[in-house]
Design a protein around this nucleic acid. Structure first.
Length: 490
RNA sequence: CGGGGUGUAGCGUAGCCCGGUUAUCGCGCCACGUUUGGGACGUGGAGGCCGCAGGUUCGAAUCCUGCCACCCCGACCA
């Protein structure tokens, strides 16, 4: 267990890495940029999964599962999709190993596959190949399917949670009879993502469209949610794509409409990944460790007993057990850490590192006075409260901490969002404080490219709620009717 | 994939340039005792194919070659 976390302000990457490892969330596996998600980290991911899954089902979706392996030929069917993913695919070429005669194994050259299999980087191709068989009539539509899966993208550079070679995610793939309905679905899902991230993760996001160059490979429109991390860099937290009829045409998925005419179906796909864990960590955590919003914390409250003798422990435990029982009756996740192998001070630090929202300590003094010590993780404040008030206080604190975290993050984003008029001002802001920058852009990829090359900032999105205002592009001076959102991004 | 760096006990490290006793130190771990309201202290103890594979040498953690993994910067990206 680390005693000293690198300070957030000193080296953000190092702080992040140490935090992920020391808070027991995940670690490097030593295998090609893949991580091991540890039980504590996974329990947070499971909570996120459960809420998302509920929201998907409430919006009419069903879960299914498609193969991990995709025949190489599937990829050649949608040209832009290939271009987008070909460079980063893991490819299975053989199906057997054999003894090398020296105690090791080698790939058996005689076991070469006729057609190579691609480990899915995303499942559009295999799913659309399947949908061709499932869809004949308008009565088969809409088809609203989600899958929870792992995918592999052979990224050159990896980072725990933010960009691992293998990651866990969900991918929704839907088919619709009309363009309008597909677009509505795309918008609905970006809203579901935004609601989840804001309500449960307490991370404020900006909804918007991607520019053509940032669009998903094969999509006609990509909607996204963008969050701002504490180091002033943006993180794409989720995407929802309107795929038009591109995949339907590539995989020949047609349906017969009411009027007897045949047409290609309209498609969407949408996904969020374990990257959300990175967003959660980088949005709220501090120099003492992880800070978890109550709605996602595996333990919302931890009770730490303080005692010298066994008699004292018994007295303290009685109260702790009662409090735990009463809190659980209120639906609160409580842990009573009665281990005698660690001292109270050690436990205090441990639970701060792990981000438990509320800590209650009970010692002999409290037994005598009818009190408990309550500490909040978000504000790092402590107070003595009476036994009779503890349940109501904690129940109310769950909401208060949840909204406090959101408000803190929202204020940070407001303070770190700057509107600029000129390119000089843009560069100045980018270098001095970073964050989100709103500026007019002429809408061309050339200008976008130029800005990216010169400053490393990219257009994160064209915000959905951008207000119409006449202006001129900060680079070319050409007319622009709304400001777009720039930032350096992960 | 290009540039730079690192790999020594569970973790963090010294030693490497300039080869030569039993590989250094701190944390952690185990035992016993004293402790317990913010990461306790003392005494004793265990734990190493020095990333892996070759090579040079009487002798390699140290020099050479190859490979693997990780970190940073680029390019790529959820």
């Amino acid at each position: 267990m680390a005693k000293n976390l690198t300070k957030r302000s000193e080296d953000y990457s190092k702080w992040y890495n140490e935090l992920v490892i020391n808070a027991d969330l995940a670690e490097n596996s030593g295998v090609r940029g893949c991580m091991v998600i540890k039980p504590y980290g996974f329990s947070i991911w499971e909570k996120m999964q459960a809420e998302l899954d509920r929201m998907f089902k409430e919006t009419g979706h069903q879960n299914a599962y498609f193969p991990l392996f995709i025949p190489k030929s599937y990829f050649s069917k949608e040209a832009s999709h290939v271009d987008g993913f070909a460079k980063e695919c893991a490819v299975v070429t053989h199906y057997r190993l054999k003894d090398d005669g020296e105690g090791g194994v080698v790939v058996d050259p005689s076991a070469k596959l006729e057609e190579e299999l691609i480990v899915r980087p995303t499942s559009e191709t295999i799913i659309w190949d399947t949908y061709r068989k499932w869809i004949q009539s308008y009565r088969d539509l809409p088809l609203l399917v989600n899958q929870w899966a792992n995918v592999v993208r052979w990224e050159m550079r990896t980072r725990l949670f933010l960009r691992t070679s293998e990651f866990l995610w969900q991918e929704g793939h839907t088919a619709h009879a009309t363009k309008k309905e597909a677009i509505e679905e795309t918008e609905q899902m970006v809203n579901v993502y935004a609601d989840f991230v804001e309500e449960f993760m307490a991370v404020p996001v900006i909804k918007g469209f991607k520019t053509a160059s940032e669009r998903f490979a094969g999509a006609e429109e990509t909607y996204c949610i963008e969050a701002l991390m504490q180091d002033g860099k943006a993180l794409q937290a989720g995407t929802s794509h309107f795929l038009g009829q591109n995949f339907a045409k590539a995989f020949d998925v047609k349906f017969t409409a009411k009027d007897g005419k045949q047409d290609y179906v309209w498609a969407t796909s949408w996904g969020v990944s374990t990257r959300l864990m990175g967003a959660l960590i980088m949005t709220h955590s501090d120099d003492n460790g992880l800070v978890l919003p109550p709605k996602l914390a595996p333990n919302q409250v931890v009770i730490v007993p303080i005692y010298r003798s066994e008699e004292q422990f018994d007295l303290v435990s009685d109260i702790a057990n009662q409090v735990m029982k009463e809190l659980r009756a209120e639906g609160i996740r409580v842990k009573f850490d009665h281990r005698d192998t660690h001292k109270p001070g050690w436990k205090f630090n441990e639970y701060e590192l792990k981000g438990v929202p509320v800590r209650l300590a009970i010692g002999p003094r409290d037994v005598e006075n009818g009190t408990l010590e309550l500490a909040r993780r978000d504000t790092l404040t402590k107070e003595i409260i009476s036994r009779s008030e503890v349940i109501a206080t904690v129940v109310q604190l769950m909401d208060e901490i949840q909204s406090n975290l959101y408000n803190k993050a929202a204020n940070f984003r407001t303070e770190n969002t700057t509107e600029v008029k000129s390119y000089d001002e843009f560069k100045e802001v980018l270098n001095s404080k970073g964050g989100f920058i709103l500026a007019h852009w002429d809408g061309t990829s050339e200008t976008e490219e130029k800005i990216k090359n010169e400053t490393k900032a990219t257009i994160r999105c064209i915000p959905l709620d951008a207000k119409e205002e006449p202006g001129s592009c900060m680079i070319t001076g050409k007319p622009s009717n709304k400001k777009v959102l720039f930032a350096k991004a992960y």
